[in-house]
Each structure stands twice: as structure tokens, then as C-alpha cells.
Write a protein that binds this DNA or RNA. Structure first.
Length: 477
RNA sequence: CGGGGUGUAGCGCAGUUCGGCAGCGCACCGCGUUUGGGACGCGGGGGUCGCCGGUUCGAGUCCGGCCGCCCCGACCA
């Protein structure tokens, strides 16, 4: 239940975010530091994200499975870069059933190792390939600083793990799944993303190449919203994932992994939210439409509720909620559902019953601007059109915001200035020293080398060396 | 782990200076009036004042120790 205004985004963005997550009942703090409880409203949003992704995974030939939460410590140590990347943030179980374990068990931070181990058992022949498996799971990474959804010790995600006969096929899979993420983010989340390649420094521990979709949040910081990794033969060699090719020669597989987590909920909140609260894209919103009945007396109540029942029946294919609470006023309900981000509100009062109409109020256009009076006929169609309009306009608005805050600095001084308040798209020679200098001077990091390049060549924004690619620099979550 | 802040009802806070009945607003429960942008009246319920110890006739308040959480940094999906 909300009773007062949120902190303003412009005054304290992170306080706005923290308050909103809790007040909208998406999540709450758990008794363990850094852990969260995903509440029913937040989980319902996650379920819609899961469905949207799972549908796409199935459509691209993947199947789901479940691998264990515990991984033998020695597994993590088999791939050098992997263990170096993850060892600082591992949760380790050393006692089980009251006995000290012979070998400590790691609570999975990600499952490349245990899945690699299983793949080595399952894969014998080129006829077994490709293996295209996904799992929906929770993982644990012992982070220093945590934020609800954005970075918690335990989080929920999906991780796809595939094995292929050739490098080309694995690379194609890596890119294909990044495209799946981008399609999901843009079309279902209405979150505009930039697809690209991670720098050496930013790539996944154990990957040959990492690809990412990067989004701009409402405070102009970047959020890595999904990643896809080409693992080469690194894990295949560490876990002996081998197959016999058609010429009866033993070959190592080429593997990939890709993941998208509950962090994406944070992306939705910070891409679309405003000072009134959440703004959810219709395709993912747990509640797409809320009906608020309005009446003054018993006579009106009966008439209005009869109309509400008819409308509810007509709109049964939508995720719809009737707010028939009697203990709060309509005005309170308006604010309450706006805070929760419901895309479309339908008000039905005595005047509407009389005129055979209803009132629409768009969440993405607060106040009078978002209100319209709509005839009752063909209502389902009108609602569907309105939800689509909202879905589209959310994406357009977010895209316009990102464009307005993406700069192309001409020199280093300008780069340092623009990353204080947006993205910088600039030539980069690819050297880690230049990347590190920017980070040291500004705290901004390279987010990705976008696939979409202007072409040609330029001079590295840091050192002036000839460069063939431009990179996004930004402060990131 | 360093720097800063904070801990009193579900939430937000006052009270701590100068020790003397545990308070306010919102939320919650009951009754009535209300209801097209955060209603109102009356009546209620709810507390290990973060924890442990000390001083005192008496501690939310003073002293010592410990803990949690938040913000800023180093690390990260």
C-alpha cells in the first residue's frame, strides 16, 4: 500500500529505485545481507520474462534441463581464467551432515564446469552434436555491494550451454542467442539495447569472446542486460568434451554459454520508471489493465458493477484486475496502480454506463494527456490497439532518450566530460592501457564495441593511434 | 575492508542536549458518513527504544563493548 510520494529521480536516483522496488512490492530485503525476496508481483513479472525467453529458446531448438546447485571445488579450478575470475566471489560449503567434507562444494556461480563435465560423458560422436541445453536456475556470487535485482548474492537467471562440432557453428550460436536477447529486450521489454562485443578486460572469465546487450538507464548509466559467450575450446579441453568426427578422428567440441537474469527487472524499472513509480511494458506487465469502478451510492454501484462484469468478460484474454476495494477512494487507486506500473487503467462510472463508454488512462502519459473516452463497442480491439501503442511508444521514448544522451566526443577532454552524463561513442585502438586510463580518470568503462559501426578509421580518443572500431564508454551498474 | 551516516510500533520520524509514565504522522482494526486524481469523524490495537554489560532510587537518554543496515570507494551479471 502506498501512502506518499516517492523520492524524486532527479534528486536521488538510487533512493528512488530502492523505495520503488519495495513499495511496488517487487522485492524485499531478506534476513541475509545482500539477498532478496522476490515478492509475488515481482515474480509474476519474472515469469512473463521467462515465458517470452523460453518461447524463443524453444523456437531456436533448445531444450531445458536442471543441473545441480553444488559443484566440486576442483571443477572450478580446471579452467584457469574461469577460476581466477570467480574464486573471489565463491560461496563454499565445507560441512555436510555434521562432517567436514573431503572436498569442498562450491555453490554454483554459473554452471559451465558441471555442465562441461556432463557433456564429456554424453557426447561421443559428431552425430550427438549440437547439444543445445538451457537451464532456469539460481546462482550465488559473493558480491561486496548489492542492490535489489541489480546485484544480489543470489540471483535467478537462465543459462544456456551448447556444444558444437565447429568453431563457426559455435560462433553463430553465440551471436544468434545475443540476437534473441536483443529481440526480447526491444520487442517485449521495450528496452532499447546496443549489441556488441566486450573488450578483453570486460569479457567473461574463460571466454574467447563475450557479446552483450547494453541499455541506458534513466540516470544515463549503462546496464549490461544479457550476455552471450563464445567459449572456444577452453572448457572442452578442461573437461574433455570430445567427439569422433566422420573421419573417425577425435576432436574437441566448441562451446557457448549465454545468460539473462532477474537484473533485467532492474533494466525495466530504470528504463521506463518515472516519478510516479513503475511503468511496465504491456507485453511483460503482470497486470495489463486495471479497472477502477466509480460510484456514489448503492444504486450506482449495482449499475457500474454490472458494466464492469460485462467489460471484464469481454477483456478476458488480457491480464486484467478489477480493483473493487471499497475502503479506498478512486483517487487513491489511480495513484496506487500508477505506482505499480499497470500500463492501462479503465475507469467505469455512472456517466460511462449512461453513455455506453469507458475512460482510458495511459500509464505512459500521466494526467489529462493520457485520458480518453472510448465507446464500449469493439472494446477488446481498442484495448489491444492501445496496449500496442503504449508498448511502441515506451520503446520510442527510451530510444530517443538514449540518442539524446549519447555523445561523440572529439577529444579526450570532451570524452571525460560527456561520460559524466551519458554514453560516449568514440574511436578506440583496442589497447587495455587506454581503456584503463579512461576508467582511472572517469570511472567509465568500455561497455561494448557495437556491431553497428560507422566504418572507416579514426584516431583512438585516448592515445591517438589509428583505430578501426568505435566503442561505447559509460559508467555502468 | 577504508570513509561517512543511521538504528525508537509495519513505514517515516520526534524524544537523547539537561536521566523521571514511550510519543507523533501514515498504515492496521471497528462503526458511520464518503467515493470521476492520494476522503473525513469517533473509537481501538500494536513497543525487548539494535544487542550485551556498566553507572543510578530510576536509563530510549550517561559510560564501555558488540552487531545490523544505508551511502561513498576497491570488485562485479
Amino acid at each position: 500500500m502506498s501512502d506518499e510520494k516517492l523520492p524524486l529521480r532527479s534528486e536521488n536516483y538510487s533512493e528512488w529505485y530502492n523505495t520503488l522496488v519495495q513499495r511496488a512490492e517487487l522485492a524485499d530485503y531478506a534476513p541475509v545481507r545482500g539477498c532478496m525476496v522476490v515478492r509475488p508481483y515481482g515474480w509474476s513479472l519474472w515469469e512473463n520474462i521467462q515465458q517470452a525467453l523460453d518461447r524463443r529458446f524453444k523456437a531456436t531448438g533448445h531444450v531445458n534441463a536442471a543441473f545441480p546447485l553444488f559443484i566440486p571445488m576442483s571443477f572450478l579450478e580446471k579452467e584457469k581464467a574461469h577460476v581466477e575470475g570467480f574464486s573471489p566471489e565463491l560461496a563454499v560449503v565445507t560441512i555436510g551432515g555434521g562432517e567436514t567434507l573431503e572436498e569442498p562444494l562450491v555453490v554454483r556461480p554459473t554452471s559451465e564446469t558441471v555442465i562441461g563435465y556432463m557433456y564429456s560423458k554424453w557426447i561421443k560422436s559428431y552425430r550427438d552434436l549440437p547439444v543445445l541445453i538451457n537451464q532456469w536456475a539460481n546462482v550465488v556470487r559473493w558480491e561486496m555491494r548489492t542492490r535489489l535485482f541489480l546485484r544480489t548474492l543470489e540471483f535467478f537467471w537462465q543459462e544456456g550451454h551448447t556444444a558444437h562440432a565447429t568453431s563457426e557453428e559455435a560462433e553463430a550460436e553465440t551471436r544468434r542467442m545475443l540476437d534473441v536477447y536483443a529481440d526480447f529486450a526491444i520487442n517485449d521489454g521495450a528496452v532499447p539495447v546496443i549489441s556488441g562485443r566486450k573488450s578483453e578486460k570486460e569479457k567473461f572469465a574463460g571466454a574467447v569472446n563475450s557479446y552483450t546487450i547494453e541499455a541506458m538507464m534513466g540516470d544515463k548509466r549503462a546496464l549490461q542486460s544479457g550476455t552471450s559467450h563464445f567459449l572456444g575450446q577452453n572448457f572442452a579441453k578442461a573437461f574433455n568434451i570430445q567427439y569422433l568426427d566422420p573421419t573417425n578422428t577425435l576432436q574437441y567440441c566448441w562451446t557457448t554459454s549465454w545468460g539473462l537474469s532477474t537484473r533485467f527487472i532492474g533494466a525495466i524499472i530504470m528504463t521506463h520508471g518515472d516519478d510516479q513509480g513503475l511503468v511496465l511494458p504491456p507485453k511483460l506487465a503482470p497486470i495489463q489493465i486495471v479497472i477502477v469502478p466509480i460510484y456514489k451510492n448503492e444504486d450506482e454501484r449495482v449499475k457500474v458493477m454490472t458494466a464492469v462484469a460485462a467489460v471484464t468478460e469481454e477483456l478476458k484474454d488480457f491480464r486484467l484486475k478489477v480493483d473493487d476495494r471499497q475502503e479506498v477512494t478512486p483517487g487513491f487507486k489511480f495513484n496506487d496502480w500508477e505506482m505499480r506500473g499497470v500500463p492501462l487503467r479503465i475507469e467505469i462510472g455512472p456517466k460511462d454506463v449512461e453513455k455506453g463508454s469507458v475512460a482510458f488512462a495511459r500509464r505512459d502519459a500521466p494526467g489529462r494527456a493520457g485520458k480518453s473516452f472510448v465507446p464500449r463497442d469493439r472494446l477488446a480491439q481498442r484495448v489491444a490497439e492501445m496496449l500496442q501503442t503504449i508498448q511502441t511508444s515506451l520503446h520510442e521514448k527510451a530510444l530517443a532518450f538514449r540518442k539524446a544522451n549519447t555523445h561523440e566526443p572529439g577529444d579526450y577532454a570532451e570524452l571525460c566530460q560527456v561520460v559524466e552524463d551519458g554514453f560516449a561513442f568514440a574511436w578506440w585502438c583496442g589497447r587495455a592501457e587506454c581503456e584503463a586510463k579512461v576508467k582511472e580518470d572517469t570511472k567509465a568503462t568500455t561497455r561494448c564495441i557495437p556491431f553497428e559501426q560507422p566504418g572507416g578509421e579514426g584516431k583512438c580518443i585516448v592515445c591517438g593511434a589509428q583505430s578501426s572500431e568505435k566503442v561505447i564508454f559509460a559508467k555502468a551498474y
